Simulated assay, not measured.
Amino acid sequence: MKKTTNYLIILIVLFTFQQNVFAQPSAKKLYKYPFGVQAYTFRNHFPKDVVGTLDKIQKMGITEIETSGAKGVTDEEYKKLCDARGIVIPSTGAGYDQLEKKSQDIVTKAKIFNASYVMCAWIPHKGDNFTIEDAKKAVEVFNNAGKFLKENGLTFCYHPHGYEFRPYENGTLLDYLIKNTNPEFVSFEMDVLWILHGGGNPVKLLKTYGNRWKLMHVKDLKKGVVGNFSGGTPAENDVVLGTGQADWKNIFKQSNKIGIKHYFIEDESEHELENVPLSIEYLKNLK
């Protein structure tokens, strides 16, 4: 009887140990969200074959896409093609000029896609010289457009592109944009590569501005690349996640804290068919 009791105790201890050991890895996973992609990643594919491109995206295990649609199909057709493949469209894009005009076309497209967010990725400016005057004009445009979009059930997000890191007063022009836009109407989408390229710190910015960040482009900058304020870099400087400069562990720790739920992998290299699956595997195994 005593031996049987001892065996039972040993079995219980081993079972408990096993449960703890095997439960810990999944509990520590940092990336817990659907896999998304920015449609620009497949810019060389969509013009040739919309259906085939969406098939490729589906086979990669991607279930979210940020897109403005594709040439050759209507927005309604595009949405049906995505629906058939279990791909949802949380976010769509709009041009600065459309926002300035508060174009109803932005709302129409977003409603067709059943999107919740509208993003803009560029503020017009001359050459590489983004100025305080450009920033002031953008604040006005974004506040007005953001109010218009909120009235239509949508959240506006500006996507900084690196040129906003020019110094201004005690910070940068990006600080100016965030502090002077109305949080009720204007949110932001972080593109990690462009933040790094402009000289910014993604983790610090997530901590500083919290839930002003609603979306993220998951994108890595090649090691050794020194950025600038141009808002541009050769396509080959986009690399597989985890092989570049980004501190993904701390980025996701912070983005989890502030509640970002939609992440779009973007790869502007010419190796997207190889790179995107490798980036997805990296996210799956990030702990």
Rank of each mutant, 00 (worst) to 15 (best):
G86M: 08
K79F: 09
K261Q: 13
A121F: 12
P34G: 02
N129D: 15
A235H: 14
K179Y: 09
I9P: 04
N228Y: 08
L205K: 04
D55R: 07
K79R: 14
E272V: 14
T4K: 15
K111G: 03
F46C: 07
I112Q: 02
G86S: 12
K79A: 12
Y209L: 08
Q19C: 09
E184F: 02
M216N: 05
F188E: 01
A135S: 13
K59E: 14
E164P: 05
K204S: 13
K101N: 11
E169H: 11
Y263I: 03
F229Y: 15
F113W: 12
K102D: 02
K71P: 02
R166I: 05
Y263L: 01
L177W: 03
G244T: 03
V50W: 07
I260Y: 04
K102Q: 15
I280R: 01
G227S: 10
V73P: 09
V13H: 04
N20Y: 07
K150D: 05
F185G: 00
W194D: 06
K214L: 10
N129R: 12
K111H: 15
K101M: 12
K109L: 15
D267V: 05
D175M: 03
D134Y: 05
V141Q: 04
A84R: 05
P183R: 01
N20E: 07
V73T: 10
V50Q: 05
Q245N: 04
P167A: 13
E169W: 03
K59Q: 15
H159Y: 07
N170Q: 13
L215M: 11
F156G: 00
L221F: 09
E77H: 02
F252S: 02
S103W: 06
L241I: 14
L8K: 11
F148I: 06
Y176L: 01
N250T: 08
I280S: 02
T4V: 13
P124M: 13
P277N: 09
N237M: 08
A145G: 06
L173H: 02
D191R: 02
F15I: 14
V239C: 08
E236R: 10
G259R: 09
E270N: 15
I62W: 04
E266H: 10
G93F: 15
